[in-house]
C-alpha cells in the first residue's frame, strides 16, 4: 500500500514538474527573456587593495583617521553613523582629549531635553554619545534630498556584497552614460536628478558625486588627497565602523586555531594509542 501510494505521489510530482519544465522550456525558446539594462551594464566592484585584506590584515590607523576626516567633512552632512559613538574613535587611534574635542566641535548637535524648561533642545555631544543624525527623521531626510533617504553608513560595507570595494567603486564610478547604453536601451536614459553609476545595482543613483575634486579635503598628515585616495580612505573607515572588532577577531582566531591544531594532534595520537591497545587485547 505504502509503495503504491508513494509511486502515485512520485509520479504526480515528478510528472508535473517535467510538464512545468516543458512549458517553461518552450516559452524560453519561443520568446527568450529580454536582457535588462542592469544585466548588461551593471559592474562588479573594482579590485582594490587594503591593509586589512587577507586573513591576517590589520587596519592602517592613519588611513582610518583620514577616512574619518572625509566622513566628517563630506559624508556626515547627509549620512548618519548611528551605531558608532565618539568614544569608539579610540579604536582608530585618537586619545581621550582628542575625542572630547572632536565631539565638542561636531557640526551636528545631540538632541536633548532642556533640563530647565523640558523643551526639546540640543547640546554639544560628549564622548559617550553616538554620532548625531543629520536629519531628525526619515521624512526630513527625504524632503531635503529629493525624496531619497541617505542610508546610515555604520554597516554599509557589511550590508553590500564585497562592501569595501563596493563603496570605493561607487565613489569613483560616476560617469556619463555610455553611448552604447542609450543606443540599445533608449528608455534607460538616466532620469533628471539621478546620476549614472555602473556600480549601483540599478545604475542610477540619487546621490550626486560627493568627492569631485582633488584636494577637496586637506589631510593633516600631508597625504595627497586625490579623489581616488579619499574614496579609498573613507571606504577603509567605513570598513572599520562596520566591523570595529576585526583585529580582535583575527587575533583571537589565530590563537584559537593554533591551540586547536595542537589539541587535535594530541587527540589523534591518543585515539591511535587507544586503538593500538585494542589490537594487543584482541
Amino acid at each position: 500500500m505504502v509503495r503504491i501510494g508513494a509511486f502515485l505521489v512520485g509520479l504526480f510530482f515528478a510528472g508535473w514538474l517535467l510538464i512545468s519544465f516543458l512549458v517553461g522550456a518552450v516559452a524560453y525558446v519561443s520568446e527568450p527573456p529580454a536582457k535588462t539594462v542592469e544585466h548588461e551594464f551593471h559592474k562588479h566592484p573594482k579590485d582594490v587593495e587594503f591593509s586589512f585584506d587577507g586573513p591576517l590584515g590589520k587596519f592602517d590607523r592613519a588611513q582610518l583617521q583620514r577616512g574619518f576626516q572625509v566622513f566628517k567633512e563630506v559624508c556626515s552632512a547627509c549620512h548618519s553613523l548611528k551605531f558608532v559613538a565618539f568614544r569608539d574613535l579610540a579604536g582608530i587611534g585618537y586619545n581621550e582629549a582628542e575625542i572630547k574635542a572632536i565631539a565638542k566641535q561636531w557640526a551636528i548637535k545631540t538632541p536633548d531635553v532642556d533640563p530647565k524648561t523640558g523643551e526639546m533642545s540640543t547640546r554639544e555631544p560628549v564622548p559617550a554619545d553616538y554620532f548625531p543624525k543629520p536629519f531628525a527623521n526619515n521624512v526630513a531626510a527625504a524632503a531635503a534630498n529629493n525624496n531619497a533617504i541617505p542610508p546610515d553608513l555604520s554597516l554599509m560595507t557589511k550590508a553590500r556584497h564585497d562592501g569595501t570595494a563596493y563603496v570605493y567603486s561607487l565613489l569613483t564610478g560616476y560617469q556619463n552614460q555610455p553611448a552604447d547604453l542609450i543606443k540599445h536601451f533608449p528608455d534607460a536614459k538616466t532620469p533628471e536628478g539621478l546620476h549614472y553609476n555602473p556600480y549601483f545595482p540599478n545604475l542610477n543613483l540619487a546621490m550626486a558625486p560627493p568627492l569631485t575634486a582633488d584636494g577637496q579635503v586637506t589631510y593633516g598628515d600631508g597625504t595627497k588627497s586625490s579623489v581616488d585616495q579619499m574614496s579609498k580612505d573613507v571606504s577603509a573607515f567605513l570598513t572599520w565602523t562596520a566591523e570595529p572588532k576585526l583585529e580582535n577577531r583575527r587575533r583571537a582566531g589565530l590563537a584559537t586555531i593554533v591551540f586547536l591544531l595542537i589539541a587535535t594532534a594530541l587527540a589523534y595520537m591518543s585515539y591511535q594509542n587507544i586503538w593500538a591497545d585494542k589490537k594487543k587485547a584482541a
Binding site: G10, G15, F21
Partner: peptide
C-alpha cells in the same frame, strides 16, 4: 528566480521525488 535556474530545479526536483518514491 530566473532561467535557466528554474528549469534546472524543475528537472532536479522531479528526480528528487522520483528517487525516493519510484
Amino acid at each position: 528566480a530566473e532561467e535557466p535556474y528554474v528549469m534546472i530545479s524543475q528537472i532536479a526536483s522531479a528526480y528528487y521525488f522520483a528517487h525516493f518514491l519510484i
